[in-house]
């Protein structure tokens, strides 16, 4: 940071300390609800209403309680299936489309590209009723397939991968072509191996998004609570005051994402930033 900062930004100790204090307070404020979520979930049932900062004695009773009341494990499994399948599908379909845009020049390329960009302007709510009706006709309402299939084309994925493929060294592609490889072969033997870090970061981002998705599952699965976000909602409605198990369920709903974040922090942050700066 320091070497890139302008000369004027290097301040005295007081200036730096001020920065630390303000950022530290803000950071704590942001993390506190997350801490409180887990702290409450780890208190013994009779201590749930205590407001001591450290939960002690620790207890997993709330988790056991949550598991007993709801099929939390089943919901987590369903959500994982949705997240993994939709992320993989989005990656594959996005990769193919991005490859088409980057490796060829073809008639209608520009209008087709704008068709992808244009989806940013279509709010989900303007398309939900016809999509709901179509899912009904296909018999996919109340199924996980109904949650996954309509999300399989991620515009974000297509645009992000296209940008990366555009900066792909053309010499590599030309060399592969000289070897007589097909376009399909070049994609898998030359492009994909080089693009692996980008694909990994994008895949994680898409999986997290699918895991946390609320609107679409809420519409497709109106009568069941097959995914964790909906299970959590029904829990809130019926037993809103049973804070221990509720916090335990919420904690479990966030755990996989946090675990991914801790291990792959840099990749995830980069992916989020890139997704914003399309």
């Amino acid at each position: 940071m320091d070497e890139t900062a302008p000369v004027g930004e290097r301040g005295g100790i007081a200036r730096r300390a001020g920065g630390h204090i303000m950022l530290g307070l803000l950071g704590l404020l942001c993390v506190f609800p997350i801490y409180w979520l887990y702290a409450t979930s780890l208190r013994a049932p009779q201590d749930v209403y205590e407001l001591s900062v450290l939960p002690w004695p620790l207890s997993l009773d709330s988790y056991a309680d949550a598991m007993a009341k709801n099929d939390v494990a089943g919901m987590l499994l369903n959500t994982a299936i949705v997240a993994v399948l939709s992320a993989l599908g989005q990656l594959l379909i996005g990769l193919l489309a991005a490859y088409a845009f980057a490796a060829w020049r073809f008639p209608l390329q520009r209008p087709l590209y704008l068709l992808f960009v244009g989806t940013w302007l279509v709010p989900f709510q303007a398309t939900m009723l016809p999509n709901y009706a179509l899912l009904g006709q296909l018999g996919l309402l109340e199924t996980l397939a109904g949650v996954i299939i309509p999300t399989l084309c991620s515009t974000l994925g297509v645009l992000l991968l296209r940008e990366h493929l555009m900066s792909f060294p053309k010499e590599l592609l030309d060399a592969a072509r000289m070897d007589g490889r097909s376009a399909w072969g070049i994609l898998w033997t030359v492009v994909v191996p080089t693009l692996r870090p980008v694909l990994a970061a994008l895949g994680i981002l898409l999986a997290i998004t699918a895991w946390n998705e609320y609107f679409w599952p809420a519409m497709v699965l109106q009568r069941s609570n097959a995914v964790i976000q909906l299970g959590l909602r029904s829990f809130m409605g019926t037993e809103g005051n049973d804070w221990g198990p509720l916090m335990a369920t919420a904690g479990l709903a966030c755990l996989p994402v946090f675990a991914l974040y801790l291990f792959l922090q840099r990749h995830i942050v980069n992916a989020f930033v890139r997704s914003g700066l399309k």
Binding site: L23, P33, W36, W211, Y214, L230, R233, M236, A253, C254
Partner: peptide, 27 residues
């Protein structure tokens, strides 16, 4: 330190909206 502060401030973004709703209802 700057990266650490940013990571802290970024963390809520990863919380599922419904889980966030649940904890705020409690708070």
């Amino acid at each position: 330190a700057a990266a650490a502060y940013r990571a802290l401030i970024f963390a809520p973004m990863l919380v599922a909206p419904v889980a966030g709703a649940a904890v705020w209802q409690w708070l």
